[in-house]
Every structure is written in structure tokens, then in C-alpha cells.
Nucleic acid binder design. Structure first.
Lengths: 189, 189
DNA sequence: AAATCTACTTGATTCAAATCAAGAAAGCAT
DNA sequence: ATGCTTTCTTGATTTGAATCAAGTAGATTT
């Protein structure tokens, strides 16, 4: 909790009243390894900050998972598209390891939005941030070859990708596990 | 102008004061075929509704264009990531044909946001909408094979893709123009 | 500890798309 | 209209990744 509030403080300077209102709606929650935070077809009723741990966001296509993203400490998880529209999600989100999150539900977020200027501003900033990230991810997906994306991934989170099954990573890169395995053996030398 | 206002009216019911404030900041503009609305590295200082015409949004990679999206009537154009953050854009946007847009610049949009509840609400709705679209586009990019994406494209905008150079479409699909040409000859039969 | 399951690697083969290359057709400019 | 450029098609070849297949290592269950 403290770290998240600390990070918020870098962006926004809420009053003590505002802070209290936020703290009131935050629900700490532990997501076990493999447990889902959100399933395709469900409406995303809450979003959450990751305190520690990691999750994967993926689409399910023809009996196979296609990873769209991996998310770590301080990231915001949920399908923003589904959360904001309150329409069913196309996305699944599941924990890669035991993950502690701070979650807030839709009605309460909207209430915060409408009643506390600081939180409205923070909401806007988070959405902007998601856009910037989405644009970067999209650019990388279109521009960078799989090897480059693989290296970026392991360089950014070396510890995590020691533990994550490689077929998740392969699906993120848009290649088969066999091909990823061959990349790895080449790169290591 | 009328059509855009008509579409707005389906979502929002602004007061006459609010309408006047919007109309005041809207600048009609014609973008000639091939002319850019936004270039990589520039800060996206305005966003625009397309009245009629079409544009392509693309990344430039190693001397080649990679189309990220094609946009048509009633769409909102601009790099949202750049517009909201007022940081340089990674995206280029250029007209595929003579295109009439209604454009609004950053400061004035923010002013509208802060002073007119209806426009703040519309702004939020447009951003949400962009998210939903972005999630769909991303899902399609990850899930659907090139042929499926090609068919979706021409079925949705048959007239436009009669005129658009195929290598733009090929780059959107992530294939070479030659391969697209071969798809086409097979599909036509 | 044995048995089972999942993850990962490695090899052989197949296949689809990129590349290389050339020519036809359509659009634009002089 | 003529020439020039761009776009599109078609063919031959090559290449890189998917698929098919087998085997090893690790983890989990009983």
C-alpha cells in the first residue's frame, strides 16, 4: 500500500480528505499463481495496482493462449476497454505467481472521479499513461522482430522470465516454443 | 460540420452555451492527398474529426512504412498518446485522399474539458471509445491471419480500398505486396 | 520412490512467405 | 500523345519458421 501511495504522490498531491476517500475503497487482494483476475466474456468490474508479483494478459484463440502483455509491480491491471465501457472483456488476465494487488471497483472509482478533483486528474493521467504504453507496445509489435522483443523482455525483467513458462513468452512473440528454444540456444553462446 | 454535431448529439446533450463554445474552437481544414496531419517526432497539438475522406496512420521503420490503421468518416485522428502527454509522436498520419477534417487544438480542448461538463464527458467517452477500438485492433492483429484481416478491411470499406495503393494494405497486414497480390488472385476466383 | 505430467530441447521434414527478377498496366507529367 | 514513374502481377528460387516427432529433464502426485 505504502509504495503505491508513494508513487501517487509523485504525480498528484491529494488532500488528506481525498487520501482517506481513496484508502477507503482500496481492497487488498492476493491472486494465487494461475488464478484469474479477469476472464474473457466477463465485465471488468475492477482494476488493480500490482503491489508485487506479475500477471499475464492474453487472448484465447483456438484452444491456445496468445499473450498480449506481461505486467509487474506498480502496473495497473484490468481491461480498460471493458472497465470503462462496462462491456464484456475480450481479454483474460491471470497471475504468473502469487500476486498482491490493490483493487478498486467501478462504481467507487467513478464516485471518486466525480467527487474528488485530484482523483479525477489521476484517473486521466493513468488513462493517458495506458495510451502511451499501448502505443509503444503496438509500435514494438509492428516494428521489432521477435529476437529483439525477446531480448527487451528478458533485459527488463530477468528474474521473472526465469520462472515463466516459455510457451507464454513464445506466444507473446508470435512464434512457436520450438523456435524460441532455438533462439535461446543461439543467443546464449 | 452538421454530421459531426449530429453524431455528438446521439451521445451527449449539450446546452446551447456549450455548443457555441465547441463551434468556436473547431477549425475546418482540408488535408490534400499525401499531405501529413502528423509526423513522427512532432508533438500532436491537435486532434480532428474526419468529415469525409480517409487517412492512414503508420510507423516508419527502416525506410519502409508500416501501416497501423486506416481511418474514415467520423473517426477521430491524431496520436492520442502524444496529444494527451504532449510528448513527441511515434506515429505518422497522412491523407489517402483529399480529406476534410474539423480540428481542435490541445489548449482549447483542455479548456473545454475544464469548463463544460458535457465536453468533459464527451472527451471521456471518446477516449474510452479509442480504448475499445485499440483493444479490438490489437486482438485482430494477434488473433486473425492476414487473409481474414484483408477480407474484413475490404468488406468494411470496399470503395476506399479500390483506390489505396496495395503496398499500404500489405504493410497493414504484415506481408509483402507480392504475397497480397497472390491472395487477391486466389480470392477473386 | 515410482509414476505421471509438463516444460524444454533437438532433429528432420514440410510449407508458406520473402526475396529476386521481370514484365504489364495504370497514373502522372511534360 | 509520349515518356516516365508507380503499382501490380506473375514466376523461380531461397529461406526461415511451423510442423512432426522423439527424447530429456523437472516438477508434481500418489
Amino acid at each position: 500500500m505504502e509504495r503505491v501511495l508513494y508513487n501517487i504522490n509523485k504525480v498528484i498531491h491529494p488532500t488528506s480528505t481525498e487520501l482517506a476517500a481513496l484508502v477507503k475503497i482500496i481492497q487488498p487482494r492476493v491472486i494465487e499463481k494461475g488464478e484469474h483476475f479477469l476472464r474473457e466474456g466477463e465485465i471488468c468490474r475492477s482494476i488493480a495496482f500490482i503491489e508485487h508479483g506479475s500477471v499475464r494478459a492474453y487472448y484465447r484463440v483456438e484452444e491456445k493462449d496468445i499473450c498480449k502483455d506481461f505486467l509487474f509491480e506498480n502496473a495497473v491491471i484490468g481491461s480498460f476497454a471493458s472497465f470503462f465501457s462496462q462491456f464484456p472483456s475480450a481479454l483474460n488476465i491471470a497471475a504468473l505467481e502469487k500476486t498482491h494487488v490493490l483493487q478498486m471497483n467501478y462504481e467507487e472509482v467513478i464516485h471518486l472521479y466525480d467527487n474528488y478533483p485530484s482523483w479525477q486528474k489521476l484517473g486521466r493521467i493513468i488513462v493517458q499513461d495506458q495510451f502511451v504504453k499501448a502505443e509503444r507496445r503496438e509500435a514494438s509489435l509492428l516494428k521489432d522482430p521477435p529476437e529483439v522483443r525477446y531480448r527487451a523482455l528478458i533485459e527488463e525483467h530477468p528474474k521473472v522470465f526465469k520462472k515463466v513458462p516459455l510457451h507464454y513468452v513464445a506466444s507473446y512473440l508470435g512464434i512457436t516454443p520450438e523456435t524460441l528454444s532455438r533462439y535461446r540456444s543461439k543467443i546464449k553462446l
